[in-house]
Amino acid sequence: MSSKIQLQINHTPIEDYKHQVHHHCESGAVSNLFSSYGLPLSEEMVFGIGAGLYFAHVTFLKTLGAPTTTFRFFPGQVFKMAAKTLGVQCTVRTYKDAEKGMNDLDALLAEQKPAGLFTNMLHLAYLPDIFKFEFSAHNIIVYGKEGDDYLISDSIIEFPVKISREALAKARFGKGFLGSKGRMYHVTDFNPKVSLEEAIRTGIRKMCKRMLRKVYPWGGLRGMRRLAKGIKKYPEKFSTEQVAFYLTNIVRMQEIVGTGGSGFRLIYARFLQEAATRLNSPALNELAGELKSIAMDWRNFALKAGKTAKTKGEAMTAGCAQLSDMLSDIADKEEQLYLKLLKTV
């Protein structure tokens, strides 16, 4: 049975804004933003409806000096897909002129509307220096202003913070990889026209098809299998230091960069669990269990990669071969899971 979404509206979105801590900045920001409009969706639900789960290993694009490995779809797409699927109307703007971008933000706040911003983590003054790095697609929500300071809800940190206009402008318009151009998004009409149940099904279908699609050699399951083959050859192609660096970077992207562990697989498994309750589907609940088990395989992969990165010579060669087998096995299991998910929804 499906029913139209019922909004729980008490005050204006800004008055109702609550800072909640999450794992992933984009899903977390959207969860907090939509909740302030009376649609309390968990981070997991946003990530799932937004079809966020993905895998790509792109050797021609470097992140922190190593081939880019990502476990989620492009930045901004979770928000876009979740809003579209739920029928929430949003406006996304980018700016050439920083002053105009800041004035537009002020205008939104004056209308009592919280705004989502893409920012460069390198220039976010409130982050500890060690966590500042070049990434221009870090999502935050601005939910108010006190004098010239902006009230910021960054869902990956424990408390809401306050930063100056100058500091916020620098974070929005600082140049960098993926160049955010002051990207700002906000809700223009919050009256979801679809049922949550249908949105869940749409999100699952989209994610599965994307993972199974064989168009791009670096993306989805094809990308995973390609990396599996590649890791086996690392010791013959690269120096010991390079192999260690590449493996460490895979662990970093899998376990650290807002993934909630196991490359977003744990977050998605919790989404499937929530979806199973919502859709009253024991089959979906079972598949959530399967994905949790796959998430454990990913974790074991990270542990093995971390240990292999500390070895040399034959031990490193053997470690890379094992990692290759582990990854192939994970790809096979994920393929079966996505096929079953497609049949279930």
């Binding site: 060690i130 662990v251 970093r252 376990e255 562990g261 240990k307 500390k310």
Partner: peptide, 23 residues
């Protein structure tokens, strides 16, 4: 040791991952 990784695993109180970072 890469500081972001070690600190993150300490933040998460994740002993097995910390073990992979140490010698």
């Amino acid at each position: 040791i890469p500081a972001d990784m070690l600190m993150f695993f300490i933040i998460r109180m994740d002993i097995p991952m910390i073990e992979t970072m140490l010698d």
